[in-house]
Write a protein that binds this DNA or RNA. Structure first.
Lengths: 293, 293
DNA sequence: GCTGTCCATAAGCACTGCTTGGGTCATACT
DNA sequence: AGTATGACCCAAGCAGTGCTTATGGACAGC
């Protein structure tokens, strides 16, 4: 048997309205339309579901049992409708963001706060991960959105993911205050270097190699306050993105812009199509609101 | 919004199959057919329900919430299907019979037993009522079937109910053994009469009036054993239907057939269309199996 | 490179599913 | 009685839904 759902729901309308004609009026149809649906439904059911009489219809026992089922179906359908509408109108839903640690410092809290104010019923969740892991999480479906960066363009290993550019910023050389300001990386070939996170370190090494030397990495930390303290005391030199220097600037360091260091690109990454999910789209909007230097 | 149920169930198939193509194969359709349904569903939902990727689809959060609802709907639909099939194949269902008291004696138990043997999962229930009340119960929906009788044809007040003839039997005059056998009712104009139930009394009075007298009703009981005991002791005369005399025959009464007394018609009454309900039809079949004399 | 699988889009056509226009029956009103 | 109303079914017609076929793009694996 096949039992068409639509017909089952039409039957429910008839049972509730008390007559075929009344149900037809409520459905905005003519009476024969409903009548034909019922006839077919009863044929497929193998027996009458309701008895036609003057003044309307009465359910048979089979009809009553079907009505109980269709009531559940109708209720569930209505609930689903509500949920879909809630999601579409941002009265619900959830976005899971993965961001690299230092991004969480400023941009993310601002965006979350704005989203919470505009759409308090949208749930946001944050986890931290470096770009490669963040993108893997999105790909695996463990996150909806990843806030990542790449040097001189989007991360290379985007795969099928979609890149949403948020802005880019300079990467600047940080040396102790009072030291002679270098005009090129090569001048620091013999300096001691402080490395940041894995990617940043990779970028630093690449730049140095292009300048003709391999940097001696003495210290390693991705905390931009710690890094600047080390530099200020003459324990090494390093590079930092502009946003880190904007967030905190040690008085005893000097900052030098060098074209060789390129720029750092900040962006969002998500599965293609995810930008259409209302809650995700809303968070993308909020994260893009503040232009990066 | 409108949220078409059929599309919601198609979405469920896709979610379960893991890809649009796989769902199409399971549904026996082509891929674009399913694709079009999904596109429309998502348009109506106001956002994507699943993300298309190589190797199949992944649900969005909205999609997951819809899937939960559609799972309930599908389960309920399947259960309804089962119930309808059970009723159609007499693996379930219920019939409520109302019968007049003396009918319950023989015909009803036989039919019930046969039905129970053939279809043990069909529930039957019996209540007793005289024809007028029995028919009222059917009309009110309190019973599915009424076993009733009428004199010289179906009951007059059938209304919209359907009459299903089961057979008819003679109505016979019962007088004490040894008394001269009357050849016409008029000969008993001065006798003392014993009346049965309301209807039977009515019929008796009518017959007597046609014969030119009003019968003196001395005793009243619808128990055909009691009646015959009274007659046997010379306390009155009466009329009884053949079936009552078949069920019990007192040795000291004599029975006389008189055309004037007409015949009693036995039949079933139900709401039009109820004969199509499998369980009801089965009971009608069983009740009709034994021909009445 | 090529092949297989996934999906979307466009155009076409058949069939579902609605409407219109009959007609019957039962109840209520005049 | 006779009429009106409201419920239902049946038959025929037609439009639009909802499939199909055909084509193209994107990605993964060999």
């Amino acid at each position: 048997m096949a039992l068409d759902v639509r017909r089952a729901l039409i039957f429910r309308e008839v049972a509730r309205a008390g007559s075929i004609s009344a149900a037809a009026r409520e459905l905005g149809w003519t009476q024969p339309a409903v009548s034909q649906h019922l006839a077919r439904l009863e044929r497929e059911a193998g027996g009458p579901l309701l008895l036609r009489g003057p003044g309307g219809v009465t359910l048979t026992e089979t009809g009553r049992s079907l009505l109980r089922r269709t009531d559940v179906i109708a209720a569930e359908l209505h609930a689903a409708d509500e949920e879909l509408a809630a999601h579409a109108q941002l009265r619900g839903g959830q976005v899971r963001l993965v961001a690299f640690p230092s991004a969480a410092a400023t941009r993310v809290p601002t965006a979350f706060a704005a989203l919470a104010e505009r759409h308090p019923e949208v749930t946001v969740s944050l986890s931290e991960a470096e770009p490669p892991e963040a993108m893997a999480a999105v790909l695996a479906g463990d996150a909806d959105l990843a806030l990542v960066f790449g040097y001189d363009g989007p991360p290379a290993d985007l795969g099928t993911l979609t890149w949403h550019h948020l802005g880019d910023e300079g990467v600047e050389l940080v040396v102790p205050r009072g030291a002679p300001a270098p005009t090129g990386l090569a001048e620091l070939a013999d300096a001691e270097w402080i490395g940041g996170c894995m990617r940043c370190r990779g970028h630093l090494v690449e730049c140095c190699e292009r300048a003709g030397f391999a940097p001696a990495l003495r210290h390693t930390t991705d905390d931009y306050v710690v890094v600047q303290n080390l530099v200020a005391r003459g324990l090494g030199v390093t590079v930092l993105p502009a946003s880190a220097l904007e967030a905190y600037r040690h008085p005893d360091v000097q900052v030098v812009e060098l074209a060789e260091l390129g720029r750092r690109h900040l962006g969002l990454v998500h599965r293609p199509g995810a930008e259409g999910v209302p809650a995700t789209a809303a968070l993308i909007r909020e994260l893009g609101r503040r232009p990066a230097g």
